[in-house]
Design a protein around this nucleic acid. Structure first.
Lengths: 162, 162
DNA sequence: GTCCCTATACTCGGATAGCAAGTGTCCGAGTATAGGCGG
DNA sequence: CCGCCTATACTCGGACACTTGCTATCCGAGTATAGGGAC
């Protein structure tokens, strides 16, 4: 089991979009260029983010993408769920109700103990991701990224915003 | 992202194998019959569990499978890692080092903040699964499963052990 | 009657197809700009 | 000189191929049993 590559791209793109000035946008092509990834495929993931209400898309010539809300109001969990569908990682198919030891449906009042344990673990995962917002991420980036890289990013931004 | 179907099967099989008397085994065919799943495919997953040292395989005519250790010493995490490979769910491909804003490799001393956040969440998931053992699961099952189902399972076991 | 040998039945183990989902790419619909034309 | 109209360039959005990994199955290698034969 592993998350799709698009999750990494989406998280990086969102952290970049958080730097876009209010009222401006950044196109999918620019985002792809910045991260060195295929633009056509990245567009597909950005589309999913837009449909989930994480980012806002602006059509037309001066169009592009921007965050749909302030960075502090967007959790990492939202970004991931937007791409992966948000369904449960572990799907209980109730195999306990199959085979020779099955009993009447009314006997299965309690939920499957295995499913419960898995959901508990999954909830811990989601809680951790739901605790952290893009705002937190930006703050962490501002202190952990080297000044050289920050300067270079700022320069690229001026070019891209022109 | 979702776990393979085999994870559910493996967890149920392990909880059944925990009921096997010491010195005895249960064949893959019996386990498949009990859960109503294709035996040939289940065998593949049991094989993975055996290679990971979770269960012990006995070849030959009176062969089969049994737990490699006491149920209280086997965590749910071990079972899942045995099937899914144990690798990280989120793989950081360091895309920050690509594109026009990249800088010299020596500037990337700090680990990627996005990767850190994802690993933290993943660790919460693994911790929760590592906390629970098959022994805990059995105890929970003994009180949550209906007496009728327990009796029916016991009857099937007597037949299978013959 | 006892021991040994052989054929058998049943087990695990790895090698082999089929299929769904993720990966990657393309072209069409829509909009703000820029330039030219008319008043 | 000013306003309007049209052609253009650039954007997002969904429809279309390809590849990887999960799903499913089979047959071969190995071992304990059971039966028969020899002593």
């Amino acid at each position: 089991m592993q998350l799709g590559e698009g999750v990494e791209w989406a998280l990086h793109c969102c952290s970049v979009l958080a730097l876009v000035p209010a009222g401006r946008t950044l196109s999918a092509a620019r985002l792809a260029e910045f991260h060195g990834v295929p633009g056509a495929y990245l567009a597909k993931h950005l589309q999913a983010l837009a449909q989930a209400g994480v980012i806002h898309s602006v059509p037309g010539r001066k169009g592009g993408y921007r965050l749909a809300r302030p960075a502090a109001d967007i959790t990492l969990l939202e970004v991931i769920d937007a791409l992966e569908g948000g369904g449960p990682v572990f799907r209980c198919t109730e195999i306990r109700r199959r085979g020779p030891a099955r009993v009447a449906a009314s006997e299965y009042r309690n939920p499957c103990a295995i499913d419960r344990a898995m959901q508990r673990a999954e909830e811990a995962w989601r809680a951790e991701l739901g605790r952290m917002t893009l705002g937190d991420l930006l703050q962490e980036l501002s202190v952990s990224v080297s000044p050289v890289a920050i300067r270079k990013t700022a320069t690229w931004f001026e070019e891209a915003m022109r």
